[in-house]
Amino acid sequence: MGRARAARELRDAEIREAAGIAEAALHEAAERDGSEIADRVERPEPLVAGPAPAGTGDTVSSTSGWKFEEAAAEMEAAAQAYQPDDCMEILAMVQGLPQALTSISNVMKILAERSDSEFPLEKEVADQFADLHGSLMGTVAVADDMENVFRTAHASDIARFEDPRNGYEAEKGWNI
């Protein structure tokens, strides 16, 4: 497997080098015949600001787009403010976790697929999105098991809620 990986890395390096040479030749030809427009086109500042220096924690700004971190922060804020009416509401939330985590994981899967086919990104980026998808799908299995853990840990409470003795109002008398 190590030899195959080394052979692939060598092949990829050769392909990148050949592509770089071909690209440089195209740029030289475009400069000679005046068809190179990159230096003549004015671009909005946020789009040409470039990547933030590595390790700074800064992000590159853009004028539009989907900001995953904003959706995630909204979910985090909702979790902080969450005040369930009762524990059965928490059980319902736990039951929905696998679907929610699958949706989040599918975001990474979609980004992996689109990075590989539609976006002008290198294969390594698509691979990272695919790895994130796989990792997040592992959390779905844990979330699937959470309902069983919840039901086992709170079996007597759930039984009293689902089948209250002498009605719900009478059962409330056991709440301490």
Rank of each mutant, 00 (worst) to 15 (best):
P164K: 14
T152P: 00
R5W: 15
T152A: 03
R165K: 15
L101H: 00
S135K: 15
D127S: 10
A30H: 05
E118C: 02
I21D: 07
W174F: 14
A7G: 10
K123Q: 15
A153M: 04
S103N: 02
S135E: 11
R40K: 11
F68P: 01
S35K: 11
G96C: 13
V107N: 09
M146P: 08
N175Q: 10
P44N: 11
I21C: 03
A71R: 00
N148G: 10
E31N: 07
G20H: 11
D127H: 07
G2R: 08
L47T: 10
Q99N: 13
A71Q: 05
R114C: 03
E28Y: 08
I37S: 11
G173C: 06
R165I: 06
N175E: 15
I158D: 01
M108S: 12
S64V: 01
G138H: 01
D144K: 06
P164C: 09
A72R: 02
F68G: 01
G20C: 07
R151C: 05
E70T: 07
A30D: 09
A112I: 03
Q95R: 14
D116Q: 14
V125Y: 14
S61L: 11
R43S: 09
M137H: 00
R165D: 10
E76P: 03
T63C: 04
E162V: 06
A13R: 14
Q128Y: 15
H27G: 03
E36K: 06
V41E: 12
E45K: 10
Y82G: 00
T56G: 06
S135C: 11
R43N: 08
L10Q: 12
A77C: 01
S105G: 13
V41K: 08
E147M: 10
R3N: 08
M1V: 05
N166P: 05
E31T: 06
D58R: 15
I37M: 13
E89C: 03
I176V: 14
A52R: 15
A54H: 14
A155I: 02
L121W: 07
Y168F: 14
T139V: 02
W174I: 06
E113T: 10
A25M: 15
G65T: 01
A24H: 04
A4G: 05
E76Q: 13
R114P: 01
E169H: 11
K109G: 00
G55E: 07
S64T: 02
